[in-house]
């Protein structure tokens, strides 16, 4: 049955639509500002330059992981292995450094590991045909095992070069080096997603796979590429994380899965509702970072933080699912 013709549109209706769109686009942003204001007023030491820089430092790795996940989400692929991939790089790079490998080579080694993980995920999804949710869950379990096998469950300490530690702990003009990395990664990711043919195709594959295929887009290639990019961002975050911690910890990356997904989901509620965008993810990371930081300063238990975060994720996903046609599987 073809349904043709336009529904009569009067001014009321158009304004109604605009208002609804506006609420959809900006309600999360308004919530973010409100939370910021509430913390500023009620929490001591929240609104200080030192603490704000601190928040920036705290969210930088999360934002980088989130940016990677955004590529996956844009192509409608989920990566549940990111947390362990962060951990993998966080072990591998310090390990190479303690063996005396020069810093640039060690960093390349970390990127190489990301490439391998991404390629395995991508091959499972696009060549074997395993849904990404399951494939990356299994791959994550494998990486988890490797992380603990390699380290024997112990942290990798030792003579890490000062230049490496500077990446995670240093400051330039008082601004954490990590923040530069964060903004650098966000800028690059934004540019790729919004201003290149590659990004356009990643979005096309996720937006309407059938239409993309019939427009001659190599659907498999872009699904695979999105997953590889996701792993690459995760290893960048892992490399920086170990530098910040000053050691390689096998369990250090584990929080980044849930928090990373949260940033993307929160981001999907704004700007282009239902679509994962880099700027949305950045705002999502800010959201998570401010809440974590504020609750911390209030002296809240980390378990309570976990509950709060769970609720935030549920609310964000509920908003996205109800207002748009969110489909992840």
């Amino acid at each position: 049955m073809t349904v043709s013709g336009t529904v009569q549109q009067n001014d009321d209706r158009i304004f109604g639509v605009i208002r609804k769109e506006w609420i959809q686009k900006y309600s999360t942003l308004v919530a973010l500002v409100l939370i910021f204001l509430v913390f500023s007023i009620t929490v001591n030491r929240f609104l200080t330059p030192l603490n704000l820089l601190n928040i920036m430092q705290q969210i930088s790795m999360l934002t980088i992981v989130g940016a990677g996940l955004t590529f996956g989400f844009a192509a409608r692929e989920m990566d549940l292995s990111v947390g362990y991939t962060v951990g993998l790089a966080g072990i591998l790079v310090p390990l190479l450094l303690t063996w005396g490998v020069p810093l640039p080579i060690a960093v390349l080694g970390g990127l190489g590991a990301g490439l391998v993980v991404g390629a395995v995920n991508a091959a499972l999804v696009t060549l074997v045909g395993v849904p990404s949710l399951i494939a990356t869950l299994a791959v994550g379990s494998i990486i988890f095992g490797i992380n603990y096998l390699v380290t024997g469950g112990r942290a990798i300490y030792g003579s890490l070069p000062a230049e490496y530690l500077w990446l995670g702990q240093g400051r330039v003009f008082g601004i954490p080096v990590l923040a530069f990395f964060m903004f650098g990664c966000v800028a690059v990711a934004w540019f790729i997603m919004e201003r290149t043919i590659f990004g356009r195709y990643v979005y096309a594959v996720g937006g309407n796979q059938k239409a993309a295929e019939l427009s001659g887009v190599n659907v498999r290639l872009y699904r695979a590429a999105a997953m590889v990019v996701c792993s690459l961002f995760a290893v960048i975050a892992g490399t920086l994380l170990a530098a910040r911690l000053g050691s390689g910890q096998p369990n250090a990356g584990e929080n980044y899965l849930l928090d990373g997904l949260a940033t993307v989901f929160i981001g999907m509620t704004m700007l282009r509702p239902g679509t994962a965008t880099i700027l949305g993810t950045l705002l999502g990371a800010l959201f998570i970072g401010i809440i974590n930081n504020g609750l911390n300063l209030m002296g809240m238990d980390t378990y309570i933080q976990s509950i709060v975060k769970g609720i935030i994720i549920l609310v964000a996903v509920a908003i996205v699912s109800r207002t748009t046609k969110l489909k992840l599987l």
Binding site: I197, R200, A204, N208, K210, A211, L214
Partner: peptide, 23 residues
């Protein structure tokens, strides 16, 4: 279902086959 992406704008939809011409 087969050709367009509803949530995209017109510019993005038009570029789907030959984006290189906007580059």
């Amino acid at each position: 279902e087969n050709a367009l992406i509803g949530e995209w704008d017109l510019r993005e939809n038009l570029s789907m086959v030959h984006p290189e011409h906007g580059s």
